[in-house]
Amino acid sequence: MPKSSFYEEEVYPSPMRQTWNEFQRNHIALGGLWCLVFFLLTSLVGPMLLPYGPLQQNTDALLLAPAWAANGDIEHLFGTDALGRDILTRVAHGCRITFGVSFILVILSMLVGCSIGAYAGMSRGIRSSVINHLLDAIMAIPTLLIAIIIVAILGTGLMNAMWAISLALIPQFIHQTRDIVRREFHKEYVTAARLDGAGNNRILFHSILPNMIEMLVVQGTMALSVAILDVSALGFLSLGAQSPSPELGAMLSDSLETAYVAPWSIALPGAAIFLMVLSINLVGDGLRTALKNRLTQ
């Protein structure tokens, strides 16, 4: 029989590709994604493009207004703060610290949480229910509160705040993963894979994981917005990053004293946090809707 290839010019959209197509239809979420990409670029290359250092003080220009104000100067686009530091530079560095730290935290707690969750999902009986109910009890406490408690034990500082927040984020990943693994293990395709001779680990990595990745990404974006808020909240309360550091929350608490004289020094870092969280939530929400649409198709 001659080898026929009727379908050569057709595309085979994979499930992931389908979710992406579905996501693209949601314009607001797509806008959020662009905004997120902008923040990602800012935190990666932004600090390299700017002429000032984050701690460099310019004593000739204290509390300079942004460039668009009548008494502003184009040398300092976003103006300067009470110590004459360039706010644009500090916001760019702040994005790098706040966004980057949160990103690393989420990846870390996702790895830990998913492995424990997968283990809990595959085990049965008392072991599984201990893991489950213990963590459910922890999930009842807000992450910020857990983080504050952990910081109170470990002491202040960005590093300790990072530990605290990643520990506080882990339970929700465990819970989510356990639920998914449990649900999927009862499906018929798992029985079919088992009849092919696959063991539990092979089923987990080859059959269930490909179905799980998108849900984990959605959960990850949600956790990312929580992490950003927590990192900057701890910074604001002087429990996380300490004062001269250009972390966005710490910048807010720094400029609190000059808030009436120089409102831009508090508004601009605040706006950065707001836009970051907004764009991440938009992307997360768009992904979740896209996934739901795909699964109900």
Binding site: Y12, S14, P15, K187, E188, Y189, T191, A192, A193, S207, P210, N211
Partner: peptide, 13 residues
């Protein structure tokens, strides 16, 4: 299997 749809993994070719 009875339900061929359920018995095929949706994420694999």
């Amino acid at each position: 299997f009875q339900h061929s749809k359920e018995s095929l993994n949706p994420a694999l070719t």
